[in-house]
Computed example of a mutant assay.
Amino acid sequence: MVKLDLVHDIQASYRKVVDSMSRPGLISDLAAEAGKLDRDAGCFPSTMIIAMMLLDTEVTFKVFSEKEAQVTHMFNRLTYANTAEAERADFIFVLQDAASDDLRNALQKAKIGELIDPHQSATVIVETEAVSGDKALRLTGPGIRGESFVQVKASADWIQIREEKNAEYPLGIDLIFIDESHRLLCLPRTTQIRKEEVR
């Protein structure tokens, strides 16, 4: 199996994440890069790529998973980033096998920054069954021309908790969803989300 190129492939993935973060609703595909990983890390290969992209010695992270110890050790060994409790972590990973209320807990505990340093907030990376362009959620805000539509298969109350955390802009949290097929969706704090009515 072809090995992941730690420079070229991580940079290619980074560009996709930046595109999706600057154009909320744009679903990027990390399958090409994820397919080059041949290790079982206890998380999606695409999640490992995101960890390798975002983590370093200057930041902290927290993992919610049944395999928390295994994944934490792997991330630490690959990136040298330190762990922290959810309230202080710069990056929080909620993996697919996490307990049913872990996403709620992660979002509620995630730091939102301070007015003098709003960038000192958390980014929450969530593994989910699927993200798609289906018309379940209407997105509006900076980076979106008019409106955009997405569907995220995750616990239903994440939208309300996110709204509460992001109520005092520029404070708030940013979200990255990654699914089993390595599709990636970014929802920065500036994006407004409204559930579409089922007809």
Rank of each mutant, 00 (worst) to 15 (best):
L6T: 09
L6F: 13
H8E: 04
H8V: 04
S13A: 10
V18I: 15
P24V: 00
R39Y: 10
F44V: 01
S46R: 01
T47V: 00
A51F: 02
A51C: 04
A51G: 15
L54I: 10
L55Y: 04
F61K: 14
S65K: 08
K67M: 14
K67F: 09
K67P: 12
E68L: 04
Q70D: 13
H73C: 05
F75C: 07
A84H: 02
A86C: 11
E87K: 10
R88K: 09
I92T: 11
Q96D: 07
A99G: 11
A110T: 11
A110Q: 13
L115H: 07
L115T: 03
D117W: 15
S121N: 13
T123A: 05
A136N: 12
L137S: 06
G143T: 13
I144N: 03
R145I: 10
R145K: 14
E147Q: 15
V150E: 01
A154K: 10
S155Q: 13
D157F: 06
W158P: 07
W158I: 03
R162V: 06
E163V: 00
E168K: 15
Y169S: 10
P170G: 04
G172D: 05
L175N: 05
E180Q: 15
S181Y: 14
C186Q: 09
C186E: 09
P188C: 01
R194T: 11
K195L: 09
